[in-house]
Computed example of a mutant assay.
Amino acid sequence: MQRRSRGCPPALARVLGAVAVVAAVAGCGGPGIEGTAVAAADWGGPATTGRPTPAPPNPGGRSAETARISAGSPVDPETYHDAKETDSSPAAPTIGFHFTTPSGNIRCSTPKDPTVLLCEVSDHSYPSATKPADVKEPCQWFPDYAMLTGEGVGKGVCLPRPLVTRGSRVLPYGSSIRMGDFGCLSTEDGLLCAHQVAGHGYQLSRDALRTF
């Protein structure tokens, strides 16, 4: 990120237009068409508090968390494309991956090429991420989004519109899903997600947002 007030992490810049079913997205500097990238300069503000928090070195990209995800019962990720863009819209095929936890409290989405994983926790007891002072309209601050990229993790994201879809397929407890380099495991204690190559990630639940 070269310009703190205008840019966003390169991976996150590729999300716009990739989560929508069929939508041209206006605002934040220019249109975004399904499956196309939007330049970082066209975003209205920074992502998270400036950039993802760099993860500590993890040679080999393995950890107890990534191993735990890999040990889950795998689902076919290609069956996790249908989703609603809003609560009232019908479910439809998308070009990204989307899923919901059995409780319905956590929803996650990726773009077509899963370079970013965004998860939203609707109901939680921990504080929401604080909006940075340099976030400007029309960019919107989403304090309950957790972002995961190959570079690190972030709490709270600045985006031109919501990118985590609604009404996506449930990922059952004990099941794991692999989306490119990202993997997630659904458990009764919450959702565990990691960049399976770099080895960092987060665990989400009503009680905590833990990063590793």
Rank of each mutant, 00 (worst) to 15 (best):
R62D: 13
E65T: 13
E78V: 09
G45F: 03
A39D: 11
A13T: 02
R14L: 03
V15H: 01
A37F: 09
V15F: 05
G17E: 14
P56Q: 15
R62C: 14
P57S: 08
A41L: 11
V15E: 10
D87H: 02
T36N: 08
V25S: 13
T49Y: 05
D76G: 05
T79P: 00
P56E: 10
A64Q: 09
E78Y: 02
E34G: 12
G72M: 00
G29A: 07
R62I: 14
V21P: 04
S70E: 13
A55H: 08
L12M: 14
S73F: 01
D76S: 05
W43L: 10
G27V: 01
T49P: 05
Y80T: 11
D82Q: 01
G44T: 06
R68E: 15
R14N: 00
S70K: 11
T48Y: 02
N58C: 12
G7K: 00
V38A: 13
G35K: 00
P9F: 09
T49H: 11
A55Y: 05
C28V: 04
I33Q: 07
V25D: 15
A13H: 03
S63H: 07
T36F: 12
A26G: 06
D82F: 07
G29R: 10
V15A: 04
I69K: 12
A39E: 01
E65K: 09
C8K: 08
A18Y: 09
G45C: 00
P10R: 04
G17T: 05
T53K: 06
V21S: 06
G29Q: 15
I33H: 07
P52C: 05
A83Q: 02
G32K: 04
A20I: 02
P54G: 05
W43M: 08
V19I: 14
P56F: 09
R68A: 15
A11Y: 02
A67E: 13
G27C: 12
W43D: 03
G27S: 15
D87E: 02
G61M: 10
G45N: 00
D42I: 00
V75K: 15
H81F: 08
A26W: 01
V21F: 00
T79K: 06
R68G: 15
V38H: 13
G61H: 07
I33T: 03
E78M: 14
K84R: 10
P54I: 04
P56G: 08
V22R: 03
D42H: 13
A47S: 05
A13I: 01
G50L: 08
A11C: 07
G29V: 04
V22Q: 12
G61C: 08
V19S: 15
G35W: 04
G35Q: 00
T79H: 06
G27F: 03
G17K: 07
A64C: 01
P74T: 04
Y80D: 10
V22T: 04
R51E: 14
